[in-house]
């Protein structure tokens, strides 16, 4: 019995440590492939360079347009996803009866399970032509379309985590507020939401991380032009789609290959910071 327990303990420990190992492996490999780039080109020229022509001779390796592309579609996604996600969380947690909640939740969960390529297909075939006609813009493959699709994709993340946070707010707090004469809407916005703010904010940061890392949708819907956006209807080339569409071609160790790893480093740093931020908010909530 003793040995069994002993074994069990160490097998599960190994399982838990593996993710640290994987994380370290990933960090090491992207930095190992990407860092040599910066012996040829300044980090600030790379990050703030305005032109991305990686296969020209000599190549222009400035990823500023790619970074702005990622940030624009991600902020757009939050504009769509946060009101809808938090709104549905408020409804599910504060307003809906148990029956309605049980009926609605599976649909939101199904939304989370749809493969991103299907979202992309929908965006490319249905949404983009509609956006082009409706707003009379030259092309429907742009920030606007990509933001809508990404926004829909992050609804389930924001909704389910926010709902957990809202439901964790103690009943006494709500009752006290109602007893003091506040109505239900005032209670939700002035008492429950502020009390759950850390959880809601961390759900939004998680949605941000998901949107900025999403590849397939932006590859299919954002148009792929490596330009600084002039409006929300400009096509852009987010960092993830540049990596995905160019990696197959770049030969190991070439400058282009290193530059793609350089993009991966920047992307990793952004998502790493956002998860640190999220854990900080989550920790604040637990206090």
């Amino acid at each position: 019995m003793k040995t069994k327990e002993f074994l069990f303990k160490y097998i599960t420990l190994a399982a838990a440590s593996l993710s640290i190992l994987f994380l370290m492996g990933i960090i090491l490999s992207i930095f190992k492939e990407g860092i040599p780039l910066f012996s040829n080109i300044d980090f600030s020229d790379f990050v703030f360079g305005r032109r991305w022509h990686p296969t020209d001779d000599p190549a222009d390796l400035g990823i500023f347009p790619l970074i702005t592309g990622s940030i624009f579609v991600t902020l757009g996604a939050l504009l769509v996803g946060v009101p809808l996600g938090v709104g549905s969380a408020i409804y599910l947690s504060e307003i809906a009866s148990t029956n309605v909640r049980e009926a609605l939740k599976p649909f939101i969960e199904i939304l989370a399970g749809i493969p991103s390529v299907i979202y992309g297909l929908f965006g490319m075939a249905m949404l983009a032509p509609l956006v082009r006609k409706l707003f009379n813009v030259p092309t429907g493959l742009n920030i606007f379309s990509a933001s809508i699709i990404l926004g829909i994709m992050i609804i389930p993340i924001i909704s389910s985590l926010s709902e957990d946070a809202l439901r964790a707010v103690s009943k006494e707090l709500r009752e006290a507020s109602l007893a003091l004469g506040a109505n239900r809407i005032e209670t939700i916005f002035k008492v429950v939401l502020p009390a759950a703010s850390s959880g809601v904010i961390s759900s939004i940061i998680l949605g941000f991380g998901r949107a900025i890392g999403e590849t397939m949708v932006v590859l299919m819907v954002s148009g792929g032009a490596a330009m600084l956006p002039k409006s929300i209807f400009s096509p852009v080339r987010p960092m993830t789609s540049a990596i995905a569409s160019e990696m197959g071609e770049a030969v190991n160790g070439s400058e282009h290959f290193q530059a793609l790893y350089g993009i991966a480093i920047v992307l990793f740093l952004i998502t790493f910071l956002s998860s640190l931020l999220m854990q900080w908010f989550a920790a604040r909530e637990n206090r």
Partner: peptide, 29 residues
Amino acid sequence: RDVSSGTFEVFKELVLKGGKVREDALLLA
């Protein structure tokens, strides 16, 4: 086309003759 395209490379050589593709061109796969 994306930079991995041979059609793009030939187009660049025969039509653009050293010029660079406009930034706002859509790059498709």
